[in-house]
């Protein structure tokens, strides 16, 4: 059939009463769903597509938010290539994401405990989720006070226990400040991951465990061969959310150290924030957009790579 004939057939079909009925059936069936989708799509366009387009444009401009923007070609990208603080912030961001090695095992072990018929398990659940519910900035401020070398609670405790003879300046030293932020962030987020793990555990059908019991599988074997593989899908999501979450987080460092001392806690997203909101130090939205766009591209690659690598975690496929 020639192309022309095919097109005229299509046009004819669209006018056919049968097709009209099919179309109205389609509208009746899916119309409300599409109508519903229209609202989030509009919001997506306004609050996602527009900012993305804005950021892409300003990669090629100098713009400080006040004076008229100026086209600068590839200057922002050249600057980025030479920006040691940015490149080292990427490594710090990656290092910071290792806090999931504390966060997730802790969440998983606690979820296993709370999945059992432990008395008062709901109280423990509430306790563990509490740090997640409290505002991050408040938690960071509390931690800031606790770590204070002058009269902070932690130093006072260590001094009283004679474990140290001089207060530790946790937030004045590069590594101690970084590690403090990692631990704090892990502590704040393990509760929600524990809930996710609990959901994963409860979604495994009981009869699978019963069959395993009959076959003599208990303890570690039950976990190794039933719990973990059958939680594959949710485990994949927990890992993805945790990794991506930490890779685009500025952690508690905005409040705790503001990126200092000496950029030791300047994570990439805190660096981006500082480019946009430099205060009296000055802002450069063009360069901020460049850093944000390049970093976002890297995260897309990481996300796609992650899903490819973890495809086999999903036992449904």
């Amino acid at each position: 059939m020639s192309k022309l004939t095919a097109e005229s057939n299509l046009a004819g079909a669209s006018l056919h009463p049968g097709s009209r009925r099919a179309f109205s059936r389609f509208v009746r069936k899916y119309g409300p769903a599409y109508l519903m989708l229209l609202v989030p799509v509009c919001f997506f366009a306004v609050f996602s597509l527009y900012p993305i387009g804005w950021a892409l444009k300003y990669v090629f401009y100098y713009y400080d938010g006040v004076m008229p923007e100026r086209f600068t070609g590839m200057a922002n990208l050249h600057r980025l290539m030479e920006d040691q603080i940015y490149w080292s912030s990427l490594w710090k961001q990656a290092l910071f994401s290792l806090k999931i090695l504390i966060e997730l095992p802790l969440a998983f072990v606690l979820a296993l405990f709370l999945y059992s018929r432990l008395r008062g398990r709901n109280i423990f659940r509430a306790m563990f989720v509490m740090p997640y519910i409290l505002p991050g900035s408040t938690m960071a401020l509390v931690m800031y006070i606790l770590l204070n070398p002058y009269n902070g609670g932690l130093n006072q405790l260590l001094l009283k226990l004679h474990l140290i003879d001089q207060p530790i300046q946790f937030l004045s030293g590069g590594w101690t400040a970084f590690a403090s932020g990692m631990v704090m962030d892990a502590w704040q987020n393990f509760g929600i991951n524990m809930l996710f793990f609990l959901v994963g555990l409860t979604s495994i059908p009981k009869d699978v465990y019963e069959s395993a019991d009959m076959d003599g599988a208990t303890g570690w074997k039950r976990m190794r061969y039933i719990s973990i593989p059958m939680m594959g899908r949710i485990l994949q999501m927990i890992l993805f959310l945790s990794i991506l979450g930490t890779l685009k987080s500025m952690g508690p460092f905005l409040v705790l150290t503001n990126g200092g001392p000496n950029n030791a806690t300047e994570l990439t997203f805190l660096y981006i924030f500082h480019q946009f909101f430099g205060g009296e130090a000055g802002s450069n939205y063009g360069y901020g957009a460049t850093v944000a766009v390049v970093t976002a591209l890297m995260l897309v690659v990481v996300s796609v790579g992650y899903f490819k690598l973890t495809k086999r975690m999903d036992y449904h496929e």
């Binding site: 100098y62 200057a75 600057r79 030479e82 603080i85 000055g282």
Partner: peptide, 23 residues
């Protein structure tokens, strides 16, 4: 400071604002 773009550098710091002296 935007007259020289990419900005000059002192160590790892960009001379892109007056506050670079403090930094």
């Amino acid at each position: 400071y935007s007259v020289v773009n990419p900005p000059l550098k002192v160590g790892s710091l960009d001379v892109s604002k007056s506050a670079v002296v403090n930094d």
